[in-house]
């Protein structure tokens, strides 16, 4: 890989002493809409195999950040690299689960066709596309609903379709944008555990954006806390909670409570 001199103005010249491989490298990312500066300076590493939670107040630019990271939105400062390659458009190592999941599904295609659609244009055989689709739908528990249309399913099931579509694409890095913000509490718990299981089973790094503190702690191995706009990174906290995690046991741990207080404080709430 060739380094373009001069472009990596803000990138640190000393190599990371950590021997883990960074799949996502963000340096000095900056983005504004017109004269409104939204992202001021985002510098962040995410390593292969991690599950990182990103929390921030509502409207702080989480979706904007993910759109910049995935190459959907041009940024005006800094660099973004995924798997070592500078991002100029969406790389094919990347999957995304959208905040507005039901709109991201196509209502005129069946559940299976929604999942299969991106695979039709990948250089893989029809048979493999078929197998990946079936496997992904199976692993999110939708094998019995493949022929239905998305709008015939509940919100939680639609979100599973969106997850299956991303899984079938076999991304190395999966970005999830507040994926469970609009489902009921019970469904949310199920989908959180589904996310943990899929992450453990697969060779996949996840960056999980949420504004729910408990969800961030429950899922993440690290938590990145963002400030209000103009947004920077307030703090990165390691989460020392054992895996596999459990909705009741993990949340009952003292460490969980301590983390909750720290994230709460970092977000600017004062007790």
């Amino acid at each position: 890989m060739t380094e373009t001199a001069g472009l990596s103005r803000t990138s640190p010249s000393s190599p990371d002493k950590d021997d883990r491989v960074a799949i996502l490298e963000v340096d000095g990312l900056r983005k504004s809409y017109g004269s409104e500066l939204v992202l001021e300076d985002i510098t962040l590493r995410i390593f292969e195999g991690e599950l990182v939670s990103i929390v921030g107040p509502s409207g702080c630019g989480k979706t904007t950040m993910l759109r910049c990271l995935s190459g959907l939105l041009p940024h005006e400062g800094g660099t973004v690299r995924i798997a070592g390659e500078e991002v100029t458009g969406p790389p094919d190592t990347l999957g995304l689960v959208f905040q507005d999941y039901s709109r991201s599904l196509l209502p005129w295609l069946s559940v299976a066709d929604n999942v299969r659609l991106p695979l039709r244009y990948k250089p893989i055989s029809k048979k493999e596309a078929e197998e990946r689709t079936a496997e992904a739908l199976e692993s999110v528990g939708l094998a019995a609903h493949t022929r239905k249309k998305p709008w015939q399913l509940s919100g939680g099931m639609q979100q599973r379709v969106a997850i299956a579509r991303a899984l079938a694409y076999h991304p190395r890095l999966l970005l999830m944008d507040e994926p469970f913000a609009s489902v009921d509490a019970q469904t949310r718990v199920e989908l959180e555990d589904l996310t943990l299981r899929l992450w453990a089973e697969r060779d996949m790094t996840i960056a999980f954006v949420t504004h729910d503190i408990d969800e961030a702690i429950y899922l993440g191995g690290r938590i990145v806390v963002l400030t209000r706009t103009p947004t920077t990174i307030r703090e990165v906290m390691p989460v020392d909670l054992p895996r596999p995690r459990d909705q009741i046991a993990t949340k009952a741990l003292d460490e969980f409570g301590r983390l909750r207080a720290s994230v709460f404080t970092a977000l600017g709430h004062h007790q």
Binding site: R67, S70, L72, G89, P90, D92, L94, G95, L96, F98, D100, R103, S104, L106, L109, L117, P118, R120, Y121, K122, R165, Y169
Partner: peptide, 22 residues
């Protein structure tokens, strides 16, 4: 829908596929 346009681009749908399916 802008989200749908994003979806097509993230999953690398070529122009003709976006035209036909979205």
């Amino acid at each position: 829908e802008p989200v749908r346009d994003d979806m097509g681009r993230v999953f690398g749908l070529p122009w003709r596929a976006r035209f036909r399916w979205m």
